[in-house]
């Protein structure tokens, strides 16, 4: 995580993300009782992350906290507890490879190594062109389509190395 002092100048969320994003966050706030705005923190962090090439900064987290009337620490707790929030730059396409039992029985480990070799990056690194990063994740709940990966919001199932190649080529 970045230095916690980074956000001290307190930029507001409205200056950090688009008005469209604010509109989306407000829609989430509307789902919960008036005095329970903080229920929208997970959605707000996700949307803020999307607006910042896929990762959160202290500045963004502080701005989310201010927008929802939460202490900064409460937002950091959420942002570091859940695995889908990122705290450093990721590729334009982050490939999340499921490593859990059904995928493992269907050679997800080999797929994970293949991807690292083919893209020349280790987990947590980004390819030089900024396009790809790889992440090992726990069960994504698509066990009957093992092995599988998630890229962005899409699931890709029943993968072979050849199929994976084609998917990578199709992403621009």
């Amino acid at each position: 995580m970045a230095n916690l002092r980074d956000g001290l100048e307190k930029k507001t969320l409205t200056t950090l993300v688009s008005s469209k994003a604010i509109g989306r966050i407000d829609k989430w706030i509307d789902k919960y009782p008036l005095e329970q705005k903080k229920s929208a923190v997970m959605a707000a962090l996700r949307i803020a992350q999307e607006e910042n090439q896929g990762y959160l900064t202290t500045e963004l987290m502080n701005a989310v906290a201010q927008y929802l009337g939460m202490p900064n620490i409460a937002v950091y707790e959420v942002a570091t507890f859940y695995s889908m929030y990122e705290h450093k730059p990721i590729g334009k396409y982050q490939i999340c490879v499921c490593n859990s039992i059904s995928c493992m029985l269907n050679e997800s480990e080999e797929l994970f190594h293949y991807l690292q070799e083919r893209l020349g990056v280790k987990p947590g690194e980004v390819t030089q062109d900024g396009r790809f990063s790889i992440k090992e994740v726990e069960c994504l709940g698509a066990c009957t389509g093992a092995p599988m990966v998630m890229i962005g919001k899409e699931y890709y199932e029943n993968l072979t190395h050849e199929k994976m190649d084609k998917i990578l080529e199709s992403l621009n």
Binding site: K31, Y32, Q36, K38, S39, A40, V41, M42, A43, L45, R46, L68, M70, A74, E77, V78, F81, Y82, S83, M84, Y85, V137, E138, C139
Partner: peptide, 27 residues
């Protein structure tokens, strides 16, 4: 009726962790 989206945590399948998460906290 509203959908709420999680953000990656197996433990939130435990019902009271799920409620904590729905309230905007760690699960």
């Amino acid at each position: 009726l509203y959908n709420h989206l999680g953000a990656g945590a197996y433990i939130c399948g435990e019902e009271t962790a799920l409620l904590e998460s729905l309230e905007g906290k760690k699960g």
